[in-house]
Amino acid sequence: MHGPASPGWLLVALCAATGAYCLLRLRSGVEEQRRAAGGEALMGFGMAAMAVPAAVFTPPSWAWPLYGVVFGAAALHALWAARSDAHHLHHLVGAAAMVYMAVVMAGTPGHASGHGSGVAPLTGALLLYFTGYVLLSGVRLVPVPGVVGGPPVTGWADRPELARACRVSMGIAMLAMLLTM
């Protein structure tokens, strides 16, 4: 992606840490945690790889179509999984956004940013979607006084509040990546 190196590296670190936690969630004893963790880990690591500042490392020309194929496959998987769990619709939008960014990056000569050309309608729609997602997910992080429930938490992989925080982090990272397009 394009932008200053320091925020780019912070974005890489955030996405990689989120991906690592999602891998940890694959070991959860809670089926709901495991179900979404693999796709979220792929998104976290994929976003980290795409966010490496272009001034530091310019991916080879074959990398962008590879991202498109990998996230296209992830989008198809999310579409299939959405038949039984609506949460996968968000994974579908996220994977489609990654395919879109890979296509845009593959099509820009020298991977130069398209600043000044205005915001493409699809970029604008994705910005609106992820802004809404981050705000709604952020509200869900706010604790409700007097509400206690759910099974006792036994390990880091079984912390639903950490999973929600990771989703908010990835939503914010997606917004940052879309804004640089």
Rank of each mutant, 00 (worst) to 15 (best):
M1E: 11
M1I: 13
G3A: 09
G3E: 01
P4F: 15
A5K: 13
A5N: 10
S6W: 11
P7H: 03
G8Q: 10
W9R: 12
L10D: 12
A13C: 11
A17Q: 03
A17E: 06
L23C: 11
L23P: 06
L24H: 08
R25M: 06
L26Q: 12
S28T: 01
S28P: 06
G29R: 11
Q33A: 10
R34T: 02
R35K: 01
R35S: 02
A37C: 09
G38C: 07
G39D: 03
G39P: 03
E40V: 10
E40Y: 09
A41N: 11
M43C: 13
G46M: 13
A49V: 11
A49I: 12
M50W: 07
M50Q: 05
V52F: 00
P53A: 00
V56F: 08
P59A: 11
P59G: 04
P59I: 00
P60G: 15
P60R: 13
S61T: 14
S61Y: 10
W62N: 01
A63K: 04
Y67S: 01
V69E: 01
V70R: 05
V70E: 08
V70H: 07
V70A: 14
A74K: 01
L76E: 08
L79K: 07
W80P: 02
W80Q: 10
W80D: 12
W80M: 06
W80N: 06
S84Q: 08
D85C: 06
H87G: 09
H88M: 12
H88A: 11
L89Q: 11
L89E: 15
H90D: 05
H90W: 00
H90V: 02
H91K: 04
H91W: 03
G94V: 01
A95P: 11
A95N: 14
A95G: 13
A96M: 02
M98K: 02
A102Y: 07
V104C: 10
G110N: 00
H111C: 11
A112G: 04
G116M: 02
G116F: 01
G118W: 03
V119I: 09
P121Q: 14
P121G: 13
L122Y: 09
L122V: 15
L126H: 10
L136F: 13
S137P: 03
V139G: 05
V139N: 06
R140F: 14
V142N: 03
V142S: 04
V142Q: 05
P143T: 14
V144M: 02
V144L: 08
V144W: 03
P145T: 14
G146Q: 00
G150D: 15
G150I: 12
G150A: 13
G150N: 15
T154W: 04
W156T: 06
A157F: 02
A157P: 03
D158R: 02
E161N: 10
A165K: 07
A165R: 07
C166I: 01
R167V: 04
R167P: 08
V168C: 08
M170V: 04
M170W: 00
G171I: 04
G171L: 05
I172A: 15
L175G: 03
L175R: 05
A176K: 01
A176Y: 03
A176Q: 06
M177G: 01
M177Y: 04
M177F: 05
L178H: 10
L179H: 00
T180E: 07
M181Y: 14
